[in-house]
Amino acid sequence: MIDDDFQPLPEEEERRIGALVRDLPPPAADPAFRAHARQRFLSGRSRAEPAKVLALPMPPRHRVQAFAWAAAAAVLVVTSVAVLNRGPAWQVTSVQGDGIAVVNQVPIPLGHTADLAAALRPGARLRVPEGTMVEISAPGALIIQLMNGADMILPATPARWFGRHVTAELARGELRIHTGEPFVGANLMVRTPEADVRVTGTTLAVICEPHGTCVCVFEGAVRVDDRHAEPADVPEGRRRFVFNDGRIPETDEIRPVEREMLRDLIEREPGR
């Protein structure tokens, strides 16, 4: 840094520049840093300590492999059981009338039963046209007929061993339901705007009418919950009407025409 040609400032100028420098305020430390540094100084730990890495003991390799095999086997078993437990797919077993059904907002002509069946997934919304009937079934276990403009969210078909409680929703129209021997132990809930209909093994109709829901039981027993009072069991040969205006539900004999329609249904073998 020695420079022989360097000419220093005149003494007065040097003092002036020095004064300018000395006039600078000291840089202020962050109070948080100051407090932190003070605490560390008083404890003798002023230098930032390197982060300690906690090394977890590694399990032996053969144990890792055994765990991996066990996990893979468990996944395989669970997957297999889930596949085997799955209920059958919905089938379209009968169609009456012409028109276009709508499945999840996709129009499908009623005559295209294969396309219609392929679209019937659990949770799908199925609407059938007025004056037509579409019969779907889980072979051997369950038949459901959708009539008079039924608008329904499909349930899953009851599974084999577990997951046998399924739920459908009927917004309007009519359903006629018949269960077969394999349905024993399963449970189908049909929810309408006014009622929850619990089916455990029977033949019945669930009809959404302008003033409420009518549940007609041809065989077995059905529990109807109108969501306002105690659930009621509807015995064989009776019907229960749940009003949508708050009136007390009414129970009566099923109408002859309904009896005949359900008799026709019960004579069908589920899954045929």
Partner: peptide, 22 residues
Amino acid sequence: GVNHAAARKRYSRALALLATML
């Protein structure tokens, strides 16, 4: 690690450079 004259001169050079910049 320099002698006194060099340290003094560094200071003077620093002020001279500051004066130029300012």
